[in-house]
C-alpha cells in the first residue's frame, strides 16, 4: 500500500470508528483494520514492496494509526455500552433542559443611547470631547453668552459648591473648553452628566445626561445642521423619522431652533407617545452666536458653526418606552437585565 492509499484508509478508519452505533459494529471495525487478517497487519507485511522513499513514512503512519484507532474504538465501546448508559442516554436526552454557559451582562440604557449616538455622529466625523462636571460659572454661563441675571443662573436651578464653582447645568461648557484649546475646524460631540435643581418626578431628574454637538468651520449653514440632525434622527429612531425646525431661543445660538422628530411609533399620525401631535421635541440647536466665538478668541467674521443638544434620558425613555425617569437610576436588576 502506497502512502496516498494509506492516508485514505486511515481517514476512513477513523470515520467508521465514530459511525459505529453498536458494540458489534465497533468490533467489526476493529477486525477490518486491526484484526489478524486486517488491513494494518497487511500493510506491515507488504512494507518491503513500498517505494524506498515512502517506506519510513508509511511505517510510522501505520503504527500511529494502529494505536490511535485502538484507543478510539475503546472509548467508543465505552460510550455505547460502558456502564450501560451511553446509548440509552443519547436516545432519551432531554434537549429542552435549560442551557448552561456564559451569560453576558447588560449595558445601562443611558450608556447604550450615548454609545449609539456617538457612533452615529462618529460616522459623520464627530469625535467625543469631555469636560469636568464641576465647572466655573464662566464656562457654564458667561462664555455661553448667558447674562448674569438669566433665569437659568438662578440658585434654584443650579447646584453651587462652596468654592464658587457649580455643577454644570449643560454639557455646553465642554464646547467652550475645546474651542479655547484649539483652532477650527472643531467637530465634536460631548456626552456627559449634567445637574439641575429639579425636584425628581416621572420626567425630571436632578442628575441627568446630555449629548451636545458642535461643528465650527468656515462655511457652515443652518441647512447643514438640519441635514446632520435628519441623519441622526433616522439612524437613531428609524428610517422613516423626519425632523422639523421651530424657532426658539438659546443664549449661545442665533438663530436658535427646536428640533422635533416625527413620532416613530405612529409615523406622525398622532398617538400616546407624541401626545397626539405626531411630533416629539428632541433637540435644541442653532447657529453659534458670534458673541460666543468672540469669547473663545475665534474671529466671528470668518468662523461659522452650529451646535445642538439633547437629553439622553429623554431619548432612552422614548426609544424603549420607559414611562418614568426614576427607573433609570434605581438599578433594579429586573429592569437592567432587559437591555
Amino acid at each position: 500500500m502506497d502512502l496516498e492509499t494509506l492516508k485514505k484508509t486511515v481517514a476512513e478508519g477513523l470515520e467508521e470508528a465514530g459511525a459505529a452505533q453498536t458494540a458489534d459494529a465497533v468490533e467489526a471495525v476493529r477486525i477490518t483494520y486491526l484484526g489478524r487478517k486486517g488491513l494494518m497487519p497487511q500493510v506491515m507485511k507488504e512494507l518491503k514492496t513500498v517505494a524506498p522513499e515512502e517506506k519510513a513514512e508509511v511505517g510510522r503512519l501505520a503504527n500511529t494509526f494502529k494505536k490511535e484507532l485502538a484507543e478510539l474504538l475503546e472509548s467508543r465501546r465505552e460510550e455505547l455500552s460502558g456502564d450501560g448508559k451511553g446509548a440509552a442516554e443519547s436516545a432519551t436526552f432531554d434537549y429542552t433542559l435549560p442551557g448552561r454557559g456564559p451569560r453576558r451582562g447588560t449595558r445601562h440604557p443611558i450608556s447604550a443611547v450615548i454609545e449609539e449616538a456617538v457612533a452615529i455622529f462618529g460616522r459623520m466625523g464627530f469625535t467625543v470631547a469631555e469636560g469636568p462636571d464641576v465647572e466655573t460659572p464662566y464656562h457654564n454661563f458667561e462664555a455661553l453668552n448667558t447674562p448674569g441675571y438669566h433665569p437659568s443662573m438662578d440658585r434654584q436651578d443650579t447646584f453651587w459648591l462652596d468654592d464658587g464653582k457649580l455643577l454644570r447645568t449643560q454639557t455646553s461648557p465642554v464646547q467652550i473648553r475645546v474651542m479655547e484649546s484649539r483652532t477650527p475646524p472643531v467637530r465634536i460631540v460631548t456626552p456627559g452628566r449634567c445637574y439641575r435643581r429639579d425636584t425628581t418626578d416621572a420626567t425630571h431628574s436632578a442628575n441627568f445626561h446630555q449629548i451636545e454637538g458642535l461643528y465650527v468651520d468656515s462655511q457652515v449653514s443652518l441647512a447643514d445642521l438640519k441635514g446632520t440632525l435628519a441623519y441622526f434622527a433616522h439612524e437613531m429612531m428609524g428610517p422613516d423619522v423626519a425632523v422639523r425646525f421651530r424657532p426658539h431661543f438659546f443664549p449661545f445660538t442665533e438663530p436658535s431652533v427646536e428640533c422635533d422628530f416625527s413620532c416613530h411609533v405612529c409615523s406622525g399620525s398622532g398617538c400616546r407617545v407624541c401626545k397626539g401631535s405626531g411630533w416629539i421635541e428632541i433637540a435644541g440647536a442653532g447657529m453659534v452666536d458670534p458673541r460666543v466665538f468672540e469669547k473663545v478668541g475665534y474671529d466671528p467674521e470668518t468662523t461659522t458653526g452650529y451646535a445642538f443638544g439633547m437629553g439622553i434620558e429623554r431619548i432612552a425613555m422614548i426609544r424603549y418606552g420607559i414611562p418614568d425617569i426614576r427607573l433609570l437610576y434605581e438599578n433594579d436588576m429586573r429592569f437592567l437585565r432587559q437591555f
Binding site: T127, R187, V243
Partner: peptide, 17 residues
C-alpha cells in the same frame, strides 16, 4: 425655519482630534 432645506449630511475628519 422649517423651510430651510436639509443639506446632505457630510463627513469631515478632524485629524488631530
Amino acid at each position: 425655519l422649517d423651510e430651510v432645506p436639509a443639506a446632505a449630511p457630510m463627513g469631515r475628519v478632524v485629524v488631530d482630534a
